[in-house]
Nucleic acid binder design. Structure first.
Lengths: 222, 222
DNA sequence: ATACCTTTAGAACAAGCGTTCGATGGTACG
DNA sequence: CGTACCATCGAACGCTTGTTCTAAAGGTAT
């Protein structure tokens, strides 16, 4: 619905390890976007291994061989999707966090941002968190993993600061895992398909978590 | 490590929709067990679509064609794994719940049971919650889904009872999702690989959740 | 109209897939 | 010793996979 988070940094075909490094800007960006969106949606529903290049061709409206004009191959599609998503997540989080200073306020900002982004780009976030390339030592895989741990560290640092001033009885790393688990929709066990307002959902998660984490100390209310 | 939950009900080759219904007991059970364990492990790590029958053959030590002596095919393997797992989960939960009566005590029992089982059979639980058969209207799929919703209902009923006597500010269905998300290891965002004692982990989850759910009301302590 | 460059798509490729078949060795019993 | 049955496996089948090749279509500038 809301597209406030969509300025994904563009890193198109531009071959990383290539020798003939003709770094053209990006004349074919818009169709690449279409391709990536279709691929992300299909990856999210059928899984990476369960998705064939012919599926993506069909879903994107681009011919099978045409795909290879825009991307290097199947795994490149996955990495491009994951890389763009974690980049966007890091960027929007940084911006959201810059508006507040108190630890509990920052925590609420983080949760709201993550939940909102997951709601706006469900397929991309699902591919980022659930899919991983099979067999293969790929440097791009490590790059994504590095940024992902950066993102996690942002949350853990916030939790450390929260803990510092409210003596939380739960270890930070463990609490960090629990919070990510709660935020990472769609729901695995499929209980509530209730379509919450995004703001309400993040508020509920925030309240539930903060009460449990800080031992009942009241939550902030900006 | 502990095998206290392993009495999985056996439902071996016994063809469900077959005509020649020679319902023999199960002369080839032990190797089937080996097969299912190997398949579950491989499914859990590489995903269902990412796993080939040759992978399973290699991991189980049974030849490729030999697999078809014990099972009907790839999807039957998946359904058998999922069916046994949810059956075992339902059974062990029922037994654990029968020992206590107070809602909060039952909640703790449920969490401890689920976490302990997930810790003892990580691959099976992961396959149950993460993997689903691609394309195909299969009646066995629906059977698993039905039992899964039964299992979810058990938890939601407990939460309803907890809510009834402590005026929880969070909707039950939503809270149910959150609790399942927290219990369903392994961790998606990969923060803490810390190997907790199982009892401690379930206790932490229980405390974190109950405080957040009931609004700070203290937890039971059996 | 000619030449050029971007973009598209049909056909084909070797490799891998799930599954089936026929044959093999091993016991148990007449 | 022969026969039936159980368990097992190598080889092969037809199909799908990711990827590449080759050629043609569309658009502009000369």
């Amino acid at each position: 619905m809301s597209d406030e988070f969509t300025p994904l940094p563009l890193t198109p075909a531009a071959e990383p390890g290539s020798v003939a490094g003709a770094t053209q800007e990006s004349p074919r960006a818009p169709k690449l976007e279409t391709l990536l969106t279709a691929a992300a949606t299909t990856f999210a529903t059928r899984g990476y291994s369960g998705t064939s290049m012919r599926d993506i061709a069909h879903d994107s409206g681009i011919s099978l061989s045409g795909i290879y004009y825009y991307t290097r191959g199947k795994s490149s599609l996955l990495y491009e999707i994951q890389s763009r998503t974690i980049d966007a997540l890091l960027a929007s989080t940084a911006q959201a966090l810059s508006t507040v200073t108190k630890p509990l306020d920052q925590l609420l900002q983080f949760v709201e941002n993550h939940v909102a982004y997951s709601n706006d780009h469900p397929a991309f976030v699902r591919v980022l968190s659930h899919e991983t390339a099979p067999d293969g030592t790929d440097e791009r895989r490590d790059a994504v993993e590095l940024k992902r741990s950066e993102y996690v560290k942002v949350l853990r640092d916030i939790l450390d600061r929260v803990r510092q001033q409210s003596s939380a009885p739960v270890p930070t790393a463990f609490a960090c895992d629990m919070l990510f688990a709660m935020m990472s929709g769609p729901r695995q066990w499929g209980v509530s398909d209730t379509e919450f307002n995004v703001g309400m959902a993040s508020r509920l998660i925030y309240d539930l978590f903060v009460r449990g984490f800080t031992g009942g100390t009241a939550a902030a209310r900006p």
